[in-house]
């Protein structure tokens, strides 16, 4: 049971890292910047999963703390990116599209 468990967890980690590589290719290909942000978001989720699996595989409890902090930081990434994008747009054609939709 123990060896099967270790083998399966190792295999899962390996496949998850391959998925990270695939998502990275998606981030490079993505035609729009939102594509890249989504890909980065997925990579963050995958990394959290890998960290949690490693904490079970290596029997190191502190890796769970690392995963927790990583999850919070990954959320911060998206918020900062949104803050960077939005003020620039509002200066250009602020609120015009929305108002038009509201009245129609």
């Amino acid at each position: 049971m123990e060896t099967i468990r270790n083998l399966l967890l190792d295999g899962t980690t390996a496949v998850l890292s391959l998925l990270i590589l695939a998502t990275l290719v998606r981030a490079i290909l993505g035609p729009r910047f939102t594509d890249r942000i989504i890909a980065v978001n997925v990579i963050n989720t995958l990394v959290v999963a890998i960290l949690a699996i490693l904490s079970v595989r290596m029997r190191e409890d502190f890796l769970v703390d690392v995963a927790l902090v990583y999850a919070l930081l990954s959320f911060l990434t998206v918020v900062v990116a949104a803050r960077l994008v939005r003020p620039r747009r509002q200066g250009k054609d602020g609120g015009h599209k929305k108002g038009e939709r509201r009245t129609s």
Binding site: R32, T34, I37, I38, N41, T45, V48, A52, V64, A67, L68, A71, L72, F75, V78, V79, A81, A82, V85, R86, R89, K97
Partner: peptide
């Protein structure tokens, strides 16, 4: 706790990305 944090934050992140996309496309 990680599950709870991710489920609290992922809708907010999705919403921000979707808003960015709809406003800039």
């Amino acid at each position: 706790l990680i599950i709870l944090f991710l489920w609290l934050t992922s809708p907010v992140a999705s919403h921000l990305i979707a808003e960015m996309e709809v406003e800039t496309v």
